[in-house]
Computed example of a mutant assay.
Amino acid sequence: MSTAIEAPVESPKPGGNVPLIELKGVGKSYGNIIALKDINLRVGAGEVCGVLGDNGAGKSTLIKIMAGLHQQSEGQLLVDGEECTFGSPKDALAKGIATVYQDLAVVGLMPVWRNFFLGQELRKGPLRALDTKSMRATTKEELFKMGIDLPDVDAPISSLSGGQRQCVAIARAIFFGARVLILDEPTAALGVKQSGMVLRYISAAKAQGFGVVFITHNPHHAHLVGDHFVLLNRGRQKLDCTYDEISLDELTQQMAGGDELETLNHELRRGK
């Protein structure tokens, strides 16, 4: 499988200073439980926003709001500068907001081309039979456009590596009209080589004008491709800065807990 970008795909039109998607003062409460509070985030065309946080930081809730699964309790969600309310994931998709979840929502025993068109199959003729020839050809062509040279799209998708499956899922989202990709921990379960494949693919999507929200708990991966970083901690936003404003060491320190880590380190050293 090649990761070189062989040919460009049609890219979203850059919107100047208007973000593709923006959150302003967004919060989410479940009864008396505050899951998110005063979150601000913006992603423009050709930008990667790294959203970092440990388990329980609020990343999943943030994803669900942007994906249309949940509505925020407060604040605004804007697409192309206009306030929107998503009642379902279909509403988000209609605006070009696509989410690639960690489990990928693929059927392992089905071939790659069936997974590429899963739920959106092409049909032909009066009996509405599956147009398998077109779907095979389109899958191979679209993957190749995005730099994935897959010899056999009839192979079960479970036979692909984790990185390859991630790339197929991202290419599928782009083909069906995504302008903003929300990637849920795409490198969490991958080794170094496979993670590198996905990070190259994120960089390629960015170069072609797509907006990417990269959800991760890995500051090294975020810093490699990110233009902007948001750090969540217990539902609050603890960091909001650009690539030029923070080094990898500083980002790692913030992710690790900053002052809390220093205090713990001091306590442990005193005990020796």
Rank of each mutant, 00 (worst) to 15 (best):
G58Y: 01
R114Q: 15
P12M: 10
R200M: 05
G147I: 09
L231E: 14
F210E: 01
G75F: 07
Q71M: 12
K59E: 00
R42C: 02
D154K: 03
I39P: 01
I182T: 01
K140F: 06
Y243N: 10
N233A: 03
P8V: 12
G257Y: 03
A207M: 02
G125P: 01
I174R: 07
F116E: 01
W113K: 10
G211F: 01
G147V: 07
L130S: 13
E267C: 09
I21R: 05
K90S: 12
I65A: 07
V107S: 15
G16E: 09
E185I: 06
P186K: 09
E10G: 08
A205C: 14
E121V: 05
S29N: 13
Q164N: 09
D154H: 06
V9S: 12
S158T: 09
E10P: 08
A204T: 14
A178W: 09
G46V: 11
A189K: 07
D131T: 03
E6G: 10
S2Q: 13
Q254V: 06
Y30D: 05
L232D: 04
Q253H: 15
G162D: 04
D184H: 07
I39T: 09
V212H: 09
Y30F: 15
E185A: 03
G87M: 02
S203K: 13
D184Q: 08
G16M: 04
F144T: 06
V51S: 03
A256N: 04
G25K: 11
L248W: 06
G46S: 07
G25A: 00
R114V: 10
G209V: 08
N17D: 15
G75A: 09
G25T: 10
A129I: 14
G25L: 07
G119F: 03
Q166C: 02
C84Y: 06
I5E: 08
S247Q: 03
A92L: 02
L93S: 10
Q120D: 04
V107E: 13
L77I: 12
N233F: 04
A67I: 10
H266P: 03
I65R: 04
E260V: 13
L130F: 14
E142L: 05
G211L: 05
P89A: 12
Q72C: 13
M1A: 12
V48H: 02
E245W: 03
Q120H: 09
G209N: 05
V9N: 03
A4V: 10
A129W: 12
V51E: 08
G81E: 04
V100Y: 01
D91R: 06
H217Q: 15
V9Y: 00
H228Q: 08
A35S: 14
F229R: 01
G147Q: 06
M66I: 14
R234D: 12
E83G: 05
D149E: 13
Q72I: 11
S29A: 13
G27H: 05
Q166P: 03
L127G: 13
S73V: 11
I34V: 15
G56W: 04
K238M: 14
K37V: 11
Q164E: 14
K124V: 07
K272N: 02
A67S: 15
F210H: 14
D131I: 11
G271W: 11
